Measured scan of single mutants.
Amino acid sequence: MISLIAALAVDRVIGMENAMPWNLPADLAWFKRNTLNKPVIMGRHTWESIGRPLPGRKNIILSSQPGTDDRVTWVKSVDEAIAACGDVPEIMVIGGGRVYEQFLPKAQKLYLTHIDAEVEGDTHFPDYEPDDWESVFSEFHDADAQNSHSYCFEILERR
């Protein structure tokens, strides 16, 4: 099963200049909980913004210009990325925008964090048809001392 995991502000903004323009430790914990011990696929820009392999996960970098870091697996196509994951129950696609666009048609599940923030962004989550998805989990949280904005975790499964 292919799943996408993303944090989205208003207007589906997911990033600005290779960074997330908010401070939500709870979302980072949600991300870790849902990706640990699963292969993660990301684009080169996302890889560069993280700066290191995510521990406890097979890191697969999709790029037309593969790098030389041998701590991760470099691939040039969506099919190659899927094959590099091996026989696993769930593959997690973690961004960025172009990689989400490439995998959305193949995805069966979306793990979304909806952030109540209007922020400037240069990267967006692809538009998706809500009628194609069923919400199977939703959990709202107010902003607090650690988390700069209110947010809602949601899991959607393709109908």
Rank of each mutant, 00 (worst) to 15 (best):
I2T: 01
L4V: 05
L4N: 01
L4E: 02
L4H: 01
A6Y: 05
A6L: 04
A6S: 15
A7T: 03
L8M: 09
L8Q: 04
L8I: 00
A9F: 03
V10F: 03
D11T: 07
D11M: 05
R12D: 06
R12I: 02
V13Y: 01
I14R: 02
I14Q: 00
I14V: 15
M16L: 05
M16Q: 06
M16G: 02
E17Q: 02
E17L: 03
E17V: 01
A19L: 05
A19W: 10
A19V: 03
M20Y: 01
M20Q: 00
M20L: 01
P21V: 05
P21Y: 00
P21L: 03
P21S: 09
P21I: 03
P21K: 02
P21E: 01
N23S: 05
N23Q: 10
N23T: 08
N23P: 04
L24T: 12
L24K: 01
P25N: 08
P25L: 09
P25T: 13
A26K: 01
A26C: 02
A26S: 02
A26E: 02
L28M: 04
A29T: 06
A29N: 01
A29V: 04
W30F: 15
W30T: 06
W30I: 03
F31V: 02
F31M: 05
F31T: 01
K32T: 04
K32Y: 05
K32G: 04
R33T: 15
R33K: 14
R33D: 09
N34Q: 15
N34R: 10
N34W: 08
T35G: 01
T35S: 04
L36N: 13
L36D: 05
N37S: 08
N37C: 05
N37D: 07
N37I: 05
P39M: 10
V40M: 13
V40L: 15
V40T: 12
I41S: 02
I41E: 04
I41V: 15
I41T: 02
M42G: 02
M42T: 01
G43L: 01
R44W: 03
H45S: 15
H45A: 15
W47E: 00
W47R: 04
S49Q: 02
S49E: 04
S49N: 03
S49M: 02
I50A: 03
I50K: 01
G51R: 12
G51P: 12
G51I: 12
G51F: 07
G51D: 13
G51V: 11
R52L: 13
R52W: 12
R52G: 15
P53Y: 14
P55C: 13
P55K: 12
P55D: 14
G56H: 12
G56L: 07
G56I: 05
G56E: 08
R57G: 01
K58T: 08
K58E: 10
K58A: 13
N59H: 09
N59G: 08
N59A: 14
N59P: 12
N59I: 14
I60A: 02
I60W: 02
I61G: 01
L62S: 01
L62M: 13
L62A: 04
S63H: 04
S63P: 02
S63L: 02
S63W: 04
S64K: 14
Q65L: 13
Q65G: 07
P66E: 13
P66W: 12
P66C: 09
P66F: 15
G67V: 14
G67K: 10
G67H: 07
G67E: 15
T68Q: 14
T68A: 15
D69C: 13
D70Y: 13
R71L: 09
R71P: 11
R71V: 09
V72L: 13
V72R: 03
T73Y: 13
T73N: 09
T73V: 13
W74V: 12
W74P: 02
V75C: 13
V75P: 02
V75F: 06
K76G: 12
K76I: 15
K76E: 15
S77Q: 14
S77M: 11
S77G: 10
S77Y: 14
V78Y: 13
V78Q: 11
V78A: 15
V78L: 09
D79M: 06
D79G: 09
D79I: 13
D79L: 07
D79F: 08
E80M: 08
E80T: 09
A81T: 04
I82L: 08
I82K: 04
A83C: 08
A83S: 10
A84F: 11
A84P: 01
A84L: 08
A84S: 09
A84M: 07
C85G: 06
G86I: 06
D87G: 11
V88M: 10
V88F: 14
V88R: 09
V88A: 12
P89R: 07
P89N: 09
P89D: 06
E90F: 02
E90L: 02
E90Y: 01
E90C: 06
E90A: 03
I91V: 15
I91P: 02
M92E: 00
V93A: 07
V93S: 01
I94S: 02
I94L: 10
G97K: 04
G97F: 03
G97E: 07
R98A: 11
V99Q: 01
V99H: 14
Y100N: 00
Y100L: 03
Y100Q: 01
E101R: 09
E101M: 07
E101V: 07
Q102S: 08
Q102R: 07
L104A: 03
P105I: 08
P105C: 10
P105S: 07
A107V: 15
A107I: 07
Q108F: 08
Q108A: 09
K109F: 12
K109H: 11
Y111W: 04
Y111I: 10
Y111F: 07
T113C: 07
H114Y: 10
H114R: 14
H114F: 13
A117S: 09
V119Q: 12
V119D: 05
V119W: 06
V119A: 09
V119P: 09
G121V: 00
G121R: 00
D122V: 00
T123S: 07
T123R: 11
T123H: 03
H124F: 04
H124D: 09
F125A: 01
F125H: 00
D127N: 11
D127G: 13
Y128A: 03
Y128S: 05
Y128T: 06
E129C: 11
E129F: 10
P130D: 11
P130Y: 08
P130C: 11
D131I: 05
D131M: 04
D132W: 09
D132I: 10
D132K: 12
D132F: 10
W133L: 03
S135C: 06
S135I: 15
V136K: 10
V136T: 09
F137A: 10
F137S: 11
E139V: 09
E139Q: 06
F140W: 11
F140H: 07
F140D: 11
H141E: 04
H141P: 03
D142M: 10
D142H: 12
D142V: 11
D142Y: 10
A143C: 07
A143T: 06
A143P: 05
D144V: 04
D144N: 06
D144P: 02
A145C: 08
A145S: 08
A145F: 09
Q146W: 08
N147G: 03
N147M: 04
N147T: 06
S148F: 01
S148Y: 01
S148E: 00
H149W: 00
H149I: 02
S150M: 04
Y151C: 14
Y151K: 03
Y151F: 05
C152I: 09
C152A: 10
C152K: 12
C152S: 14
F153W: 04
E154N: 13
I155T: 05
I155S: 02
I155A: 03
I155E: 04
L156G: 00
L156D: 00
E157V: 08
R158G: 04
R158E: 03
R158V: 05
R159F: 11
R159Y: 09
